[in-house]
């Protein structure tokens, strides 16, 4: 069976996790891979913890839900607490520096704790691009898609006039990944 990458992006509702998931899946598709993206709907999408999940594979994707993420992002403590329980062994866990990481993670979990929210707010003065920055960190440290495809996918999706801002956010994300690993 071809390698199947399961990715979970989590944060609070409004942090743009759904868009981040769509962008990641579209980046994979740009590379000719298969991708499936699912998300949480309903009240939890309006605040509280929110998640978006992506499966990337060279082969056909049968079961479309994530059961054991090999890659996970958590931008808030609440989303970390709620969604970390089924991590795969040796998973990559990217968290915002504000998150207190527990000691119950599976053995081999690689934790990358970097200042995503602070960088978005302080360096770019635009907390809204934290999701794009987080994608930079995630892809920079996991290489589940190429940086080039991710950038293309981001620019395909973001509003006109915000391209430079999002490029900067991505670049900072990749830099954080390089520093953090």
């Amino acid at each position: 069976m071809a390698v199947r990458h399961e990715v979970r992006l989590s944060g609070s509702g409004g942090q743009g996790m759904q868009l981040a998931g769509i962008i990641l899946a579209e980046a994979a598709i740009l590379e000719g891979k298969n991708a499936v993206q699912t998300q949480s709907y309903g009240p939890e999408a309006r605040g509280g913890a929110s998640r978006s999940e992506v499966i990337i594979s060279e082969a056909a994707i049968d079961y479309p839900k994530v059961t054991q993420p090999q890659v996970m992002l958590a931008l808030t403590q609440e989303s970390y607490n709620k969604y970390r329980h089924d991590l795969a062994p040796d998973a990559l866990l990217v968290v915002d520096e504000s998150i207190e990481v527990s000691d119950d993670l599976p053995t081999g979990t690689q934790v990358i704790s970097v200042p995503i929210l602070r960088s978005a707010t302080e360096t770019l003065q635009r907390p809204i691009v934290a999701n794009i920055m987080a994608l930079g960190v995630l892809v920079g440290s996991s290489a589940i898609v190429e940086r080039e495809s991710l950038e293309k996918a981001v620019l395909n999706r973001v509003p006109r006039g915000t391209e430079d801002l999002n490029r900067q956010a991505l670049a900072i994300g990749f830099q954080l990944a390089a520093n953090g690993s």
């Binding site: 298969n34 991708a35 699912t38 479309p64």
Partner: peptide
């Protein structure tokens, strides 16, 4: 709901 809401290639 799975098929309706999931995004796929």
């Amino acid at each position: 709901e799975v098929i309706g809401h999931m995004r796929e290639r």
